[in-house]
Amino acid sequence: MPKIWRPVDLKEAWEIQNELGLGNYCYVAGGTWLRTQWEANLCSMSLNLISLENVSEMTEIQEQVSNGKHEIMIGSSVSLYRCLKSTLLNQYFPPLVAACKKIAAPSIRNQATIGGNIYTTAGDTIPSLLIVKAELLWFNGVDIVAEPLEQWLITLQANQFKRDNRILVGLKMATEEDVKGAFLFFTKVGRRETFTSSLVSVAGKGTLTSAGFFQNVTLAAGGGGYPIRLSEAELELENQCFSPTLFQQIYKSIVVEFQATADPFASADYKKAVAANLITSELYKISGQPGGEQRVVGS
């Protein structure tokens, strides 16, 4: 049986992990993802499990003003259920709430944490966080430092997904004032209601001007591989007005840019096509074309 360590703060957690040595411990909060890995024999249970449930910095959803910006901070041990019920997140980040709602069953959401969902690099919350340029908060033994989620994913892939010994404390996102024509969306295609990663999940945000031009658009997709920002598609859409030709270009751009990977249930090409279809369908609705439901907020 593994030994369970229960630090009461980040400093104690850091001391414990340094004493044990890298590779000789595993951090646990909700433990839902880890349990599926252990039960499927995809990885072995560590002899030392460090529980983070008593570290207060990691268990709250807070709002604060930093450098003149209004920000929301979410501790990495906050459950997906609490994210679902958070007034702050429902007000400022509905795509994140929508993502949490579509993850597994209620019993899993009660235990699974936002930090764990991110740390897997395949969690359905990640696209919804990429579009708002969320930053991860890490404890390095001395300070808590911020790192863009997108940059962490890129660096991790370059390092063949080898993690360092920093502790994921949580994440922060800057809120924005309601802007006329602002839109946000998240949608997912999955196999069934179980704790498995989706086939494809996509998210987007931006504004649609009164003249019908897309501006300040961010798009992201996940499902196989790790979730990414679709920067090329964003550039092609920026300051453009709806047209069938534009949406055909956006579709093609997403298919090229989205680096999906095959699994036993779907090919990479299928996932690329699904992601492109989902995003262009949402943008079609947002543009208010006949037959599409216009989905904008703040108008």
Rank of each mutant, 00 (worst) to 15 (best):
K133A: 08
E135F: 05
E135D: 14
E135R: 15
L137Q: 01
W138K: 03
F139M: 07
N140K: 07
N140A: 02
G141Q: 06
D143Y: 05
I144F: 14
I144L: 10
V145D: 12
V145W: 13
A146Y: 11
A146I: 10
E147I: 08
E147T: 11
P148R: 10
E150K: 15
Q151A: 15
Q151W: 14
W152I: 14
W152V: 15
L153V: 13
L156F: 12
L156G: 13
A158V: 12
N159T: 10
Q160W: 13
F161T: 14
K162R: 12
K162H: 12
N165M: 14
L168M: 05
L168T: 11
V169G: 11
V169S: 04
L171S: 04
L171N: 03
K172E: 01
K172L: 07
K172S: 09
M173E: 04
M173G: 04
A174C: 09
T175V: 12
E176K: 10
E177V: 00
D178N: 15
D178P: 14
K180N: 13
A182R: 02
F183D: 01
F183T: 09
L184K: 03
L184E: 12
F185L: 08
F185C: 00
F185T: 11
F186T: 03
T187R: 15
K188S: 00
K188F: 09
R191M: 12
R191D: 10
T196L: 03
T196I: 14
S197P: 11
S198K: 02
S198N: 03
S198W: 06
V200P: 01
V200N: 00
V202C: 02
V202W: 04
K205D: 03
G206F: 04
G206D: 06
T207A: 10
L208V: 06
L208P: 03
L208A: 05
T209F: 09
T209N: 04
T209C: 06
T209W: 02
F214G: 00
N216I: 08
N216S: 11
T218L: 11
L219M: 00
L219Y: 07
L219T: 00
A220H: 00
G223C: 07
